[in-house]
Amino acid sequence: MLEVRGLHKSFRGLVAVNELSFAVAKGSIGALIGPNGAGKTTVFNLITGALRPDRGQVLLDGKDITGRRPDQACRDGIGRTFQVAKPLNDLTVEENVMIGALRAARGVAEARVEARRVLDLLAFGREATKPAHELTLPDRKRLEVAKALATKPRILLLDEVMAGLRPTETDQMVEVFRRLNQETGLTILLIEHVMRAVMALSGHVTVINYGSLIAEGPPDQVVRDQAVLDCYLGQEAD
């Protein structure tokens, strides 16, 4: 479904993503992991067009979408969340989600219905009418997911949406993604430090360090990989 080929990006000579290639199969949940500063978020930014790669390609369903603007990537079917949540602070939670839903909806009324559906799905109760700036950190993370989901993506890129959540909240979130994946066939690629979420959700893990691929495969296999262990050694485990 989503494939990157030989993706490369450097900032002022510092290589952030190095000739990286990997793929996420349709209907699967993939994970992109690596130590802090490994270049994971940069990969997301390259896929969604927030950054332009120096070379390499991003393919969505075989179509080359390299260098498309973020809004075009969204309309192509890529939804994303930001590592540091970007709520529309002065608007209500529902309006936040509704604006996302306007991407696929014909009008405001239809978008509002869709927004409520997504909010129910993510178990937003009374918070839905609050201004977004009043939300707690976990709720902001959920809102981030809701906004992206509302755009009706075919593939959802999640950037550390579990970070800072309590274990029970993580489990709830994991459950939501599992259900979305099973019931609607939504493809997901997640960046995550919370390993229990990665283990529980994804069938295929891609590990990068200093922008380069160092291992990939099923999660239980990857965590035993020597190269992976090495790159996490000396690095405080999250």
Partner: peptide, 14 residues
Amino acid sequence: LAIREDQEAAQAMG
């Protein structure tokens, strides 16, 4: 409103 609040978020929402 979305653009006023956060341009990047707005762009990510299409």
